[in-house]
Amino acid sequence: MTMAHFGGHGRTHLSEYAGDVWFGKLDARAKLVGIFVFVIVSAVLTDFVLVLVSLAVALTLVLASRLPVFYLARMYSAAVPFILFASVSVFLFGGWERGIEMWARTSACVLPLLVLAAGTETFDLFAGLRRLHVPAVITTLLMLTQRYILLLSEELSRMSIARKARGFRGARNLLDRYGVKVVAFTAGMVLVRSFDRADDIYEGLKCKGFGQEMTPWRRSRVALKDGLLALGLATVAGLLLTVQLGVIT
């Protein structure tokens, strides 16, 4: 399968650690339901204390998942610019408490999603969505898009190595016309080459009688532990929501 280096840890897939931890062995549907319910509720919380509680739950999930914290931290760092932008904007108009609340709320949403992405085989994740009756055209598009992104990344990595092997050290600045030209050509070549590869992959799919669906052959079953995770997260989310709505004080 097409590979792309991610995170610089010698691991080649986003979900490379999924097979090593208990969280990765749970049914994707249970994880999707539990985490999405939790994230949606966390996103609508407005009470500062409740937002902090939801962040604490998210951090507990990070630690309990047994996924390498440094790995998740690196993934989180990719979201930091967006989180900071939102938090600083809110801080400027609403004060420090609102700013921190925004940071906590977005982090409480992002962290469980990172755990879900890193702790579930990407294919299982999309297959889980399909089994939750998300339309086949969407899940198949997601799978093929992921494949294409990996392909682009692989071609980019190859071209980058080829450039370095021939002494190219990158454009020094935007006025470095030669450097910019090489980078532009590389971008064009990456697109052309990945288009060719995508064509080959499409032919490969057709050879195997591909229609519209990519679902696993083996059917997994939702076991008790899967149900408990989904139920646990949904219960926490439900409690937070009821307190937020004033049903429980």
Partner: peptide, 19 residues
């Protein structure tokens, strides 16, 4: 790499017959 699509060996072998 152009014709392996599934995450495990048996899933990939089953992919064609299922389709």
């Amino acid at each position: 790499d152009d014709q392996i699509f599934m995450p495990t060996v048996e899933e990939d072998v089953a992919f064609g017959p299922r389709n």
